[in-house]
């Protein structure tokens, strides 16, 4: 069995092929770098995405704070994550990299993408 994929780990978009050598061994070809191999394997086993969104912010400067998940999140957890994010409201100051939501049970952390001083 084989499956054609497109690597989304970087904008080069290498065309990958995943081949099942047996039940559990998967061979990835077409990747230009090791990240592609990792992506390809994960995409056929448990696809994940980085989720970026904004949350409400009380600041004299900006109404929405851009946020990003620290790591890619399993696709089936994205909807619940977004719902949580849309209920959050933060106040400045916020620092880039600060944790704005920690869903420890799911291993999901959301970080601020931007520093807003006031």
């Amino acid at each position: 069995m084989k499956k054609d994929l497109i690597c989304i780990a970087c904008p080069l978009g290498c065309r990958l092929t995943a081949r099942w050598l047996n039940e559990s061994a998967i061979e990835i070809t077409g990747n230009r770098c090791p990240r592609g191999e990792e992506y390809g394997r994960e995409e056929v086993v448990e696809p994940k995405r980085v989720v970026t969104a904004t949350v409400r912010l009380k600041s004299g400067f900006l109404k929405r704070l851009p946020v990003t998940t620290k790591r890619p999140v399993p696709k089936d957890k994205i909807a619940a994550l977004l719902n949580r994010l849309y209920t959050i409201e933060l106040s400045a100051p916020v620092i880039r990299g600060e944790v704005v939501l920690d869903m420890a049970d799911d291993g999901v952390q959301v970080l601020s993408s931007r520093t807003v001083k006031k």
């Binding site: 780990a9 970087c10 904008p11 980085v50 970026t52 969104a53 904004t54 851009p66 946020v67 990003t68 880039r96 993408s113 931007r114 520093t115």
Partner: peptide, 21 residues
Amino acid sequence: IHNGFGLHYFKEELTGPEYAE
């Protein structure tokens, strides 16, 4: 606000605001 910035330059994947900052 999406990610996909900086892989060549910083060798890590950043969001637009992070790259800007």
